[in-house]
Amino acid sequence: MAAMKVYLAGPDVFLKNGREVIAAKQELTRRYGFVPNVWMGEDDAPHSTPFAFGLHISAANEAVMRDSDFIIANLTPFRGISADVGTAYELGFMVAHGKPAFGYSNDGRLYAERLTADYYKGAVAKADDGMMRGPDGLMVENNDMGDNLMLDGGIEHMGGVFIRRSVAPEHLLDDLGPFEECLAAARARLLGVAA
């Protein structure tokens, strides 16, 4: 039986050390018995316009996802309090195609904690309707989940796990400990191989 292909989703490509992080993830993925499936053909993309370039990358990533058996998504908050929006799309794409999904975050806090502390700076209060709301009147949802309930829900419904660990702040986007935990969980659930 051929080794399972895993789509490695996340904002790693945007990091200053992105190529090194991606290479390290690919090596760990092989060590756990999976084939890393990531499109790295940026140099082959048409550069006629930035929009054409973006469409090419989008189509190429969707083709790689269709060719993958499951996904591991880096859901560490990126440029805000939630996961990278492109990664969230990719997670949803894979779940919609019925493929197992796993996720991790290098910020161990729940979404409601980040929303309250980081976005609203603690300025939330119970409103007349009994809901916790920010000063803008928007509800502060709290489902005891790591991110938006659709991300946690998709992973859970596809039999995966969402691993959350707090790492050193200076390594928030490149610490691979929680990623490796995800690989071990995927190996146990998909291949029946314990750690």
Rank of each mutant, 00 (worst) to 15 (best):
Ala101Thr: 04
Ala101Arg: 04
Thr87Asp: 04
Met150Thr: 00
Asn106Thr: 07
Ala112Trp: 03
Leu138Asp: 09
Gly130Ile: 10
Lys126Trp: 04
Asp152His: 13
Ala123Gln: 15
Gly134Val: 02
Tyr104Gln: 05
Asn143Leu: 12
Lys121Asn: 13
Asp147Ala: 03
Phe93His: 11
Gly122Thr: 13
Asp129Thr: 11
Leu151Ile: 12
Glu90Ser: 06
Gly108Val: 00
Lys126Ile: 15
Met150Glu: 01
Phe93Ser: 04
Ala88Cys: 13
Leu115Asp: 15
Gly146Glu: 13
Asp107Leu: 00
Gly108Cys: 00
Ala101Ser: 08
Glu156Met: 14
Asp107Tyr: 00
Val95Leu: 05
Asp144Ile: 05
Glu90Gly: 06
Ala101Gln: 02
Gly153Trp: 00
Gly98Gln: 06
Ala88Gln: 11
Thr116Val: 14
Val124Asp: 02
Val140Gly: 10
Asp147His: 02
Asp136Trp: 09
Tyr119Lys: 14
Leu138Trp: 10
Met94His: 11
Asp152Ile: 01
Ile155Thr: 04
Ala112Ile: 03
Asp118Ser: 06
Met94Glu: 08
Ala101Phe: 08
Tyr120Pro: 01
Phe102Asn: 09
Lys99Asp: 10
Leu110Phe: 04
Asp147Leu: 04
Tyr111Lys: 13
Gly130Ala: 07
Asn148Val: 03
His97Gly: 09
Met145Trp: 06
Ser105Val: 06
Gly86Lys: 03
Gly86Arg: 01
Thr116Ser: 14
His157Ser: 12
Met94Val: 11
Asp107Cys: 01
Asp118Leu: 08
Arg114Lys: 02
Arg133Thr: 01
Val95Arg: 14
Ala96Ser: 15
Ala112Tyr: 09
Gly154Pro: 01
Gly154Phe: 05
Gly86Ala: 09
Ser105Thr: 10
Lys99Gly: 05
Thr116His: 08
Pro100Arg: 11
Asp136Pro: 05
Arg109Glu: 00
Met145His: 11
Pro100His: 08
Ala88Pro: 10
Ala112Val: 10
Pro135Phe: 10
Tyr120Glu: 12
Lys121Met: 01
His97Arg: 07
Met132Ala: 12
Val140Pro: 09
Asp152Ser: 07
Asn143Cys: 05
Asn142Lys: 11
Tyr120Gln: 03
Gly153Cys: 02
Lys121Ser: 09
Asp107Arg: 01
Thr87His: 02
Pro135Met: 13
Gly146Ser: 14
Ala127His: 14
Tyr89Thr: 04
Met131Val: 13
Leu91Asp: 08
Glu141Ala: 15
Gly137Asp: 05
Leu138Val: 13
Ala88Asp: 07
Phe102Ser: 05
Leu110Ser: 04
Met139Ser: 11
His157Arg: 12
Met94Thr: 08
Ala88Tyr: 06
Lys126Ser: 04
Pro135Gln: 14
